[in-house]
Design a protein around this nucleic acid. Structure first.
Lengths: 252, 252
DNA sequence: CCCCCTCCTTGACCTAAATCAAGGTTCTAT
DNA sequence: ATAGAACCTTGATTTAGGTCAAGGAGGGGG
């Protein structure tokens, strides 16, 4: 459960793998999400050269842990990762769920230590982007520098949206909002916006949204009764997207 | 009340001012907070050259508004600024209070529009840092690039701490936490950590902490009864810092 | 295949903070 | 100096969601 990605760092040569993930950024289907659109092919190659790919993380494995020395940011290639803070008194706060094409780990830049832990919710492949190399490349490629400033800025605005959600919205609105967010992110990756499997537990959802498991479960129950959702354990089908948007009371 | 800073942009030549704020970064007493410590004197001058100083904002004036085109980030020189989001249904969420030496506006980088509004809580002087110039300078000065990545990263971790606060802590813990945060930031600026004037209203505090005014008021009342605080309207004196820390239940 | 464990659901009850209401204080502008 | 407005406090009541409790369903390892 506690095996770290970094322990596998030595064997870094790309090899044929059970997983069918692509071997470089140029042909990765996620690159319109993960890469700046303005990079030229040879710039992509330079970025490509600093990126390391490791064997996939198994469910429950850590990508990094809070207070670890910070050295890289990570792009999710497949699977799903949750990031969470542990406070001094031991309680956890899930701060984000990361899906393919999304980048995490940027909270470690400020102090050179990771401010959160990141754990695989299911078998997940990630690209490791060593930050010192990235910095050097950013100084050479203005569009890459811009891209990373933008990525970090978006992380800030997303956190602020979560702050608003926690501060101002009811349990139903919070859950509806999360479901819509997942739906939209699925659509960006050309997956179904209405039918998907949640990679995280009800506990994780509740923790992320500042609710108890019981409340999350009751909200799902209510939404099912209203024929807005069909819920079969982690399998979710959005039957009434407009109804869900009304519940969320938030335009996405 | 709605006069915008940008309307004053034309008259940008520095002039003697009623305010006693410094005229350049080199002798600004805040530069250990605001600037990267590793910048050489001539690098500071290059940064200095891109920074614009305008006449101070009066209480209630906007520094920028949500959805404004993004062009600059801002460093507070004196006074205090609140940043807040307005949701589509018109409710506001205060996302931060910014004191001298602190930098705001970075949430606009991601979309090229400000994701929040920023309003002066009292007469405030700010340095405007045009982002396009800053980007160019970052590409030339690795330590400046690093510094801005770090600044943004810290904004992310601070937002995540607020998320945890909102999600997991009681009204008393939230208020205690904010007071400690202000106390610590005062200390960094060589001001009293135990005796200060809150620049924001109870409504703003409640909004920021996800509480109603009444609750904030009651918490202040309780803390005063416990002889942890002395509260005289906006004038706060922390009588028992350890007691406040225990209440906050959070190590700062 | 079955056991165990984790995850999920549902119900009964409780509580922290919201809401509603009213009165007091401070600030601002004239 | 004074009127009005914005801000703050305090009390009474309500309520959304938490807590406690119990039972059910899924799934992975032996």
């Amino acid at each position: 459960m506690d095996i770290r990605l970094s322990e596998n760092k030595q064997k870094s040569e790309p090899k044929a793998c059970v997983h069918d993930y692509q071997i470089n950024c140029g042909n990765c289907q996620l690159n319109s999400i993960c890469l700046p659109l303005t990079l030229e092919a040879d710039d992509v190659e330079r970025l490509e050269n600093i990126i390391q790919r490791s064997t996939p993380l198994q469910k429950g494995q850590y990508l990094y842990r809070q207070d670890d020395a910070f050295s890289s940011v990570y792009a999710v290639r497949s699977g799903a990762i949750k990031a969470y803070n542990t406070t001094d008194d031991g309680q956890e706060q899930v701060t984000g769920f990361y899906f393919p094409g999304e980048i995490l780990g940027m909270d470690g830049i400020g102090t050179n230590r990771h401010a959160s832990s990141a754990k695989a919710l299911e078998t997940s492949a990630v690209c490791e982007i060593p930050f010192s190399s990235l910095e050097k490349l950013c100084a050479k490629l203005p569009s890459l520098q811009r891209h990373f400033f933008q990525l970090m800025s978006r992380e800030i605005t997303e956190d602020q949206q979560l702050i608003t959600l926690l501060s101002k919205n009811s349990a139903d609105e919070r859950v509806a909002s999360l479901l819509l967010s997942i739906s939209i992110r699925n659509a960006k990756r050309k997956l179904s916006a209405t039918h998907f499997r949640l990679p995280m537990s009800r506990v994780d959802i509740g923790n992320y949204l500042g609710l108890t498991v019981e409340t999350v479960s009751r909200v799902f129950g209510r939404m099912q009764k209203l024929a807005i959702l069909s819920v079969d354990n982690k399998e979710i089908q959005i039957l009434d997207p407009r109804g869900l948007q009304n519940l969320a009371n938030i335009q996405h």
